[in-house]
Design a protein around this nucleic acid. Structure first.
Length: 543
RNA sequence: GGCGGAGUAGCUCAGUGGUAGAGCAGGGGACUCAUAAGCCCUUGGUCGGUGGUUCGAAUCCGCCCUCCGCUACCA
């Protein structure tokens, strides 16, 4: 078991309102964080928002507001969506946070001190509204090259003096790093892509933009001295820090850099960065080099997930084919929303999702299979045996105990490999085994025999129902990182305590609790059976 | 164009030489504890096409078709 677990997600760009496609990785990271935290591993989970850039300043201006005012409101939407989904980061970081500004500037200073940044010229198509545009973002038309967002505004080919980071100096070290740490980037095919990119040769990249835009002031003047005006304020002539030396830095800010050396020593390097495939290169190539330049360690692992697709198309705000997280939670509940999102989306590749698919998954897995298993089990135990909870049989004699041992092993393995969807699939195989056990044993028939005075049947009834109640306990607990709200409700029906708090802290090591029969000798009182996941027939909002 | 991956039941996918599989969806049945759920049975596929290797190919090789990922500066 690891000694600690520091997990991060990509920070959401505060220009857009939250969508399920961007929050999916945050749900997954939250579940992985809870899995570690509940096992007793000191855990730190960081997520947040990326709030600088010309685009954001532009959006704010459109609304006649200051950028700061604009992002302050945007952030409340992300926090609200995460709250609704029971996402509980240890810190919600904003790139406008004061310590993050200090961290970014310190990283620039360190890169400078190490001789890794220099003033060069950056040139490209410049949109007066959005700043420099990627060659891939501009469109050639008969009237000339235009920016698709502002077709009437002519683009200018501009040259700008910028600071560059000497990525080229890190090629060999990066290749070596990838070879010596084959698990650094996962899944493997993403690692191969990144390694291929490195081997193709690395170019330096620009890390500043001219002028005092909406961004972190660049801390160094062209002559190498601190970029401060006479009154102590940042010198606008030095420009602003450009995206990667701003956004990526959040991962170390969130671990205490540069102000809290003890905290930083405890949490860095991160155990896991969870990111989308579109930013793999920046996290697996730029980022380690930036850290090395500053004398810091590279993260231990980067997990690259795919996209959510709707009818084959990437979900996105601009396409309009995205799901509002609040609608999602309203329809499926927080636990249901988390479960179906993590079960329907394969975490190692793109996945086509649909409202009907989520609904089918909810009804099949949660309402019919697991919810009904708990309901029928608690109902029979309560009816046939009164309120006292019967104990499960000892592992060697309980048929489900052996199946459970196998299930738990697979669940652990899949979660260690970030294959959350496969972990849930394995867990639900066990739910199926429990449901089949109910029908095989037919407790209602055994209960009749017991009532007629058959002592062996009475004993059998207690054993069978004790096993089934135990199966329900184990599934609820193993699924607790995914369904942290439902788990305590299940345990309450089973007459068990649930010692973890809403964040997953404060309980015993989860793996100790996931042993068949650990509470066999303890008395407990069953509660009235209440459906956990009502069967749903809900249409897509607006659909 | 180069490199890599994928095309298997309506849907999502597993299956790397030996008589085609799972889950969901569809159909039927027995039961009845339960959220008309669960359980059992079942319909359904010339395993992208084609040629070859082999006693035997979804599985190996050649060619073709289709789709996807990477092929540098978006937040």
């Amino acid at each position: 078991m690891p000694d600690r677990f520091y997990v991060t997600t990509a920070i959401a760009y505060a220009n857009n309102k939250p969508g399920l496609h961007t929050l999916h990785e945050v749900i997954a990271a939250d579940a992985l964080a809870r899995w570690h935290r509940m096992r007793g591993v000191p855990t730190r989970f960081l997520t947040g928002t990326d709030e600088h850039s010309v685009n954001i300043a532009m959006r704010a201006a459109e609304e006649g507001r200051s950028p700061r005012d604009f992002v302050d409101e945007q952030v409340t939407k992300f926090v609200a969506a995460e709250d609704a989904l029971l996402i509980a980061p240890d810190r919600f970081i904003r790139t406008t946070d004061a310590d993050h500004v200090r961290a970014s500037q310190e990283m620039v200073r360190r890169a400078y001190a190490n001789g890794d940044i220099y003033v060069g010229t950056y040139e490209g198509w410049y949109c007066p509204n959005e700043g420099f545009r990627n060659p891939t973002d501009v469109v050639e038309t008969a009237a000339g090259t235009i920016c698709p967002n502002h077709p009437d505004v002519p683009l200018q080919w501009l040259t700008e003096r910028n600071w560059f980071f000497r990525l080229s100096a890190y090629q060999e070290r990066l290749e070596r790093w990838f070879e010596e740490h084959p698990g650094f980037v996962q899944p493997d095919y993403r690692r191969n892509e990144m390694l291929g990119f490195i081997r193709g040769g690395l170019e330096d990249f620009s890390i500043s933009r001219a002028g005092a835009g909406w961004g972190i002031p660049f801390p160094i003047a062209e002559d190498g001295r601190p970029a401060v005006s006479e009154d102590g304020s940042p010198d606008p002539a030095a420009g602003t820090i450009y995206v990667w030396f701003d956004a990526l830095i959040n991962y170390i800010t969130g671990a205490g850099f540069p102000d809290d050396a003890d905290l930083f020593a405890r949490w860095w390097p991160a155990d896991l960065h969870v990111i989308g495939k579109d930013i793999a290169r920046f996290h697996t190539i730029f980022w380690p080099a930036m850290l090395w330049s500053a004398g810091l360690e590279a993260p231990r692992r980067v997990w690259v997930h795919g996209w959510l697709l709707a009818q084959g198309e990437r979900m996105s705000k601009s396409r309009g084919n995205f799901l509002d997280p609040l609608d999602f939670v309203a329809a499926f509940g927080a636990d249901g929303a988390r479960y179906v999102a993590l079960r329907e989306v394969a975490f190692d590749r793109d996945s086509d999702v649909s409202w009907d698919g989520f609904l089918r998954r909810y009804n099949a897995d949660l309402a019919n299979d697991f919810g009904n298993l708990v309901n029928r089990t608690v109902s029979m135990a309560g009816r046939y045996l009164g309120g006292e909870r019967p104990a499960p049989r000892a592992a060697p004699t309980a048929p489900l105990a052996g199946a459970w041992a196998t299930t738990l092993r697979v669940v652990e393995e899949r979660l260690a490999g970030c294959l959350v969807h496969e972990a849930l699939a394995a867990l639900w195989d066990f739910v199926g085994a429990a449901n089949r056990a109910v029908d095989a044993e037919a407790p209602w028939a055994v209960a009749k025999a017991a009532k007629a005075g058959d002592a062996a049947a009475a004993a059998r009834l207690r054993d069978v129902l004790g096993d089934l109640l135990e199966a329900c306990r184990l599934v609820a607990l193993a699924a607790a990182p995914v369904m942290p709200g439902a788990a305590p409700r299940v345990l309450a029906q089973l007459g068990h305590a649930y010692p973890w708090d809403a964040r997953g802290d404060g309980g015993p090591p989860l793996l100790d609790e996931l042993v068949w029969g650990v509470h066999a000798t303890e008395a407990g009182t069953l509660a009235a059976p209440t459906p956990l996941f009502p069967r749903l027939d809900v249409g897509e909002p607006g659909g």
